[in-house]
Each structure stands twice: as structure tokens, then as C-alpha cells.
């Protein structure tokens, strides 16, 4: 029995929420992200902004060069998280097998859900619209890789299904750069070999692919044929949880850096509480990127999670270089259950 995997992807999630909550922005190019001065980076932008060549992860100043009347809204992660939870609650009604990839993206395994999958997905998207006034796109396929590719096909506010019998035909035409793990570099290397589509790649044997790509070659052999056996993992183990900030201008003193800790701390603690993994925390860490772009991490196991302790880690990290600070991150790492899967739980003090 082929599986029925859905990849659900909210359309420009953060930007859509901002437009929903500020109706006067409707129809205008809107982005969410860091402030317009020097160092901010966009997290998301809406389709109106994309027409100007604005992309997510683009530095704000660059986006403003491309689209001078772009409206850049500050991020409101508490709101995004709240909406994300609403959406997850809707998904839970259809299947317990959900693997969230981020706030706005998740895999869902509907193999055990009765009825026509594409009809179910339509209902899910309608429910999301009713509850949140936000649109979602979805891809339906027998595996995760294809579902993810499919969700992009009819974006925004659409859905696309790749049926098992369509896979061969679909793959032949699919550009290799759409495959999992193929970035610009690998794509270029493949292009030099004359490989542009998965169909081109299918002509290579396992051995040839291993010679070219090492172990990843084996995976490529399957992927380019549309084969992907990875299960949807509802409780994919998180290794860490953290929050970080790049500052508009470098921080120049210890006091300035220390003052940033409480806010980062609150964010991480709030996420940690929601994750329900408080008893799984192994260590606390502070990440610092200096003005010369070098970075350092100070990590301590067993530290109780307090602002003061993080500030102590910060002091330790700052003492390693006498440079200004560009970015600060604060986070916790979790115990990784070993192969035998036993983890000592902690008393909640």
C-alpha cells in the first residue's frame, strides 16, 4: 500500500498574519523582519513584495533598494506561535502522525485516514482558513520528498497530488535542484556532467553516483527515482532549542550584552515550556559572533536555567576576545537518548 503523505505549507505565514491583522496593508508589498537600518534581515514577504524581487532571508536594506515602498513589519513570534498551535490542533483531528518542520510547515501521514486524501486535504485547508483567515498550500504524495515538492506546485492557496502511477513521468522532467540535499553547488556540479533533470540523473548507476557524491550518491539514486522511505516522525527528537539576535549595530560593552540576555532567556524558556521537554535539558549555552565574524560558544552542563547563569556564561565567552559583538544566541541542549534509549530524568526544582 503506498503511503499518503501530506506536506502542508502556510503561504507567506508571518507576512500573511501581519496583513490579516493590519487590513490597511492588503494589496501592498509587505515583509516581516529586522529593522530597515543596516543589518536587519527579512523573515518572510508576501507575493506583492516578491514581484519586486524581494525574497525571504534578504537583508532589509537590499529589499528596500528593490522595492522602496516595501512595508517592513517587526516580528511578533508570540502571535505566529499562537496561530501555529491552532493549525496543529486542526491537523491533530485528522492524524496523530504529524512532523512539524517549523511554525508554518508540517508533514502529515494520512495513510490511515479513510476516504479520498485530496478531499481530506481540501477540508483541512478550509478549516485552517475558517479558524485563522490564513491560506495554506499542500502537496500529497506517497513520500515526504514528493509531498514537499508538490506543495510548491500550486502555491499559493492550492494543492497538488502526485499519485504513485504518476511518479515516473513526474521525475523525468523534475530539475535535480529540486531534490533534497541538492544545493546550488551540487546542482552546478551535476550541470557540468550534463545532468539537469532527474531523468538525466537516472542514467547513472549506483556505483557512478557513489564515486561522484560519496554516500549521498546512494540516496540520490533513490531520490531521483522518486523513492523516499523516511517516515513522518511525530516526535523527532530535538537536540537543542535556542534564540538569537543579530544587532543593528555592534554591541560594544559587557553591560550592553548582558542587557540582551533577559529577553532571549524569556523566549527560550517560553518555547521550552511549550515543548514539554524541561526535564530533558542537558546543558545551557551562549553563542557569540564577534565583529570579525568569528564565533564562540560557551556551554555548561547541569546549570540551572537562570538569567544570572546565562550572563555568567556570556562573561566567560566575551573574555575570549576583546571585540565588539554582532550576534548573541542563548539556548539549551537536550540529553540525547543513547542507542539503548535510557535517560535519567531530573527532579523539577
Amino acid at each position: 500500500m503506498p503511503r499518503k503523505i501530506v506536506h502542508l505549507d502556510m503561504d507567506c505565514f508571518y507576512a500573511a498574519i501581519e496583513v490579516r491583522d493590519h487590513p490597511e496593508l492588503a494589496g501592498k508589498p509587505v515583509a516581516v523582519g529586522g529593522a530597515r537600518d543596516r543589518r536587519g534581515v527579512l523573515t518572510t514577504c508576501n507575493y506583492e513584495a516578491r514581484e519586486f524581487g524581494v525574497r525571504s532571508a534578504m537583508p532589509t536594506f537590499q529589499a528596500l533598494q528593490k522595492c522602496p515602498h516595501l512595508i517592513v513589519m517587526p516580528t511578533r513570534f508570540d502571535v505566529y506561535r499562537r496561530e501555529s498551535t491552532k493549525i496543529r490542533d486542526i491537523l491533530m483531528k485528522f492524524s496523530p502522525v504529524i512532523e512539524p518542520l517549523s511554525l508554518d510547515e508540517a508533514f502529515l501521514d494520512l495513510s490511515d485516514h479513510p476516504g479520498e486524501t485530496s478531499a481530506t486535504v481540501t477540508v483541512i485547508r478550509q478549516l485552517i482558513w475558517q479558524k485563522t483567515r490564513l491560506t495554506a498550500s499542500a502537496g500529497i504524495a506517497p513520500n515526504k520528498m514528493l509531498a514537499k515538492i508538490a506543495s510548491d506546485w500550486k502555491k499559493p492557496n492550492g494543492q497538488f497530488e502526485i499519485r504513485p502511477e504518476d511518479i515516473s513521468e513526474f521525475m523525468v522532467e523534475l530539475p535535480v535542484r529540486r531534490l533534497w540535499g541538492i544545493g546550488p553547488k551540487s546542482a552546478q556540479r551535476l550541470a557540468e556532467l550534463g545532468v539537469n533533470t532527474c531523468g538525466d540523473l537516472q542514467r547513472y548507476s549506483r556505483v557512478e553516483l557513489i564515486e561522484q557524491f560519496g554516500k549521498f550518491g546512494l540516496e540520490l539514486f533513490s531520490l531521483c527515482r522518486g523513492i523516499d522511505e523516511r517516515p513522518v516522525e511525530p516526535d523527532r527528537i530535538r537536540k537543542s532549542l535556542s534564540s538569537e539576535r543579530t544587532f543593528p549595530s555592534d554591541l560594544t560593552s559587557l553591560a550592553q550584552c548582558e542587557a540582551k540576555i533577559p529577553e532571549l532567556f524569556e523566549e527560550v524558556m517560553s518555547d521550552l515550556k511549550k515543548s514539554g521537554a524541561t526535564d530533558q535539558v542537558k546543558s545551557a549555552f551562549i553563542k557569540i559572533r564577534f565583529s570579525d565574524f568569528t564565533r564562540t560558544t560557551v556551554e555548561r552542563a547541569g546549570l540551572s536555567l537562570t538569567v544570572e547563569n546565562f550572563q555568567a556564561l556570556l562573561r566567560q565567552g566575551l573574555s575570549r576576545k576583546s571585540l565588539n559583538v554582532r550576534l548573541l544566541g542563548l539556548g539549551v541542549r537536550f540529553h540525547e537518548p543513547d542507542s539503548e534509549g535510557a535517560t535519567q530524568l531530573e527532579l523539577q526544582m
Partner: peptide, 9 residues
């Protein structure tokens, strides 16, 4: 004596 158990997966 309060003792936390170990979680086995």
C-alpha cells in the same frame, strides 16, 4: 528519598 526514574524509549 525521592528518586527520578529513567526514561526508556
Amino acid at each position: 528519598y525521592v528518586l527520578m526514574p529513567m526514561r526508556l524509549s
